[in-house]
Nucleic acid binder design. Structure first.
Lengths: 201, 201
DNA sequence: GTCTATATCGGGATAGAC
DNA sequence: GTCTATCCCGATATAGAC
C-alpha cells in the first residue's frame, strides 16, 4: 500500500485523467475522485487547472522525449540503433497507450506552449540529425534527408498506437490480444521495414 | 458571395470549429460567430451540441474515408496505385491540416461511436486487404502481412500532418514554407520509401 | 426563421471550519 | 492539510417577441 504524500497522488491522478480525456475534457472532480481526495485540495496544491495541467505536460514530455535521443546517440552501429530505438519506443508507447493521441492533440491545441516545454527539456534534435547525416555521407544508407528519415521512423512507431482503438476494431474485429500481438510483431518488423527501405542497393 | 441557407452555413462553421478545437474545446458561441448567426439558431437547427457534433463527425468521415479505398481498388498496377494513393492522401490531408489530429483524438475519446460511423460509411477495408493479399501471393511484393503494410502506409501519410505544428518548429525553425516544401517532397518520396521496403529482393 | 433575453447547469475556484 | 459548503462564471439550452 502506497500512502504517499498527497501532491504525488494528485499528480498521478491528474496525469491519468488529462492524458485520457485531454485538457478540455478533463474535469477537476474526476481528478479528485481518482486521487481519492477532495476537489478543494487540488486548488490548495496547484492553484488552478491551468497550472496543474502545465505540470502534467512538463513531466510527460520530460519522461517521453529523451528516450529516442539517448538511443540514437549511443555507440552502436547505425542499423542496430534503429532496431533498438524502434523496439524501445514502441514498447514504451504501448505501455502508455493514450500518450500518442494526447500529445498529438496538444501539439495542435497549443503548439507554442508545447514547443517551449520541449526546449526546456534540453533535447537536441540537431544531434540526432547530425548522427544520421554522418551515415548518409558514409554512403551506408540511402535516404532523402535526415528529416524525412526521422519523421518516417516516428510515424511508424507512433501512429499505430495513436490510432489503435479504431484500427483494432477495423482490422481485428476488436480483438485486444490480436492487436497486442500485432504491436509485438511491429517491434521487430518496423525496423526491418525501415532498414530495407534505406539500405544502399 | 454565398448567401446559402442557414443550415449549411452553420454546418460549415461547426466543422471548422470542432475540427480545430475538438469536441470539448469547441464553444457554441464560437460556431455562431463564425456562421455569423445567433447562438439560439444553432439549437433551432440542431437541438444540441451533441447532435451537431455527430453530424460533423459523420460528414467528415464520409468525406475522408473513401478516398483511400477508391484508389486502392482501381485497376492500375500495384506500385502505381501506391504512388497515387500516397500522393492523393497527403494532398488531401495537407489541405485539411487539422483533420488528422482531430480524428486521432476522437478515435481515443469515443472509439465505439467513431467505429459505428465508419461502418455506416460502407467502407470495405477487407477489400483493400484482399487486393494487397493478392500481390503478396503473386510474389510481387515482400511484406509481413496486409495489415502491417496498410498501417505503415497510413502512418507515413498521416503522422507528418498530425504532428506538423511541433515538427515544423523542431525541424525547420517554424518556417512555414520549409514545411510546405517538406510535405510536397513527401508526396513522391513516401511512396518510393515504401516501394523500396516492399520490393522483392 | 431569426433575434434578445433569460433560465439552467456544470465545473472551476474560494471561504472558512476543523 | 483536509474537509464541507458555497460562490461565481461560462456555456448550453430554452422562452418568447418579432
Amino acid at each position: 500500500m502506497k500512502e504517499k504524500n498527497t501532491e504525488a497522488k494528485i499528480l498521478e491522478a491528474a496525469k491519468a485523467v488529462f492524458i485520457e480525456k485531454g485538457k478540455d475534457g478533463a474535469k477537476m472532480q474526476a481528478i479528485a475522485d481518482k486521487a481519492k481526495i477532495n476537489k478543494a485540495l487540488l486548488h490548495y496544491y496547484f492553484r488552478s487547472k491551468d497550472k496543474l495541467f502545465n505540470v502534467v505536460i512538463e513531466e510527460t514530455m520530460f519522461h517521453f522525449l529523451p528516450k529516442v535521443e539517448e538511443t540514437f546517440l549511443s555507440d552502436d552501429n547505425f542499423f542496430d540503433k534503429i532496431r533498438k530505438v524502434v523496439s524501445d519506443y514502441i514498447s514504451l508507447l504501448s505501455e502508455n497507450p493514450f500518450i500518442p493521441a494526447f500529445m498529438l492533440h496538444e501539439i495542435n491545441r497549443n503548439p507554442d506552449g508545447l514547443f517551449n516545454v520541449m526546449m526546456k527539456s534540453g533535447i537536441r534534435i540537431d544531434l540526432i540529425f547530425t548522427t544520421i547525416q554522418k551515415e548518409l555521407q558514409n554512403n551506408t544508407i540511402n535516404i532523402v534527408s535526415p528529416q524525412h528519415f526521422f519523421i518516417n521512423l516516428l510515424s511508424l512507431c507512433i501512429f499505430p498506437i495513436a490510432a489503435r482503438p479504431l484500427m483494432q476494431r477495423a482490422m481485428f474485429f476488436n480483438d485486444q490480444k490480436a492487436y497486442d500481438d500485432f504491436i509485438e510483431e511491429r517491434k521487430t518488423q518496423t525496423a526491418e521495414f525501415i532498414l530495407k527501405a534505406i539500405k544502399v542497393s
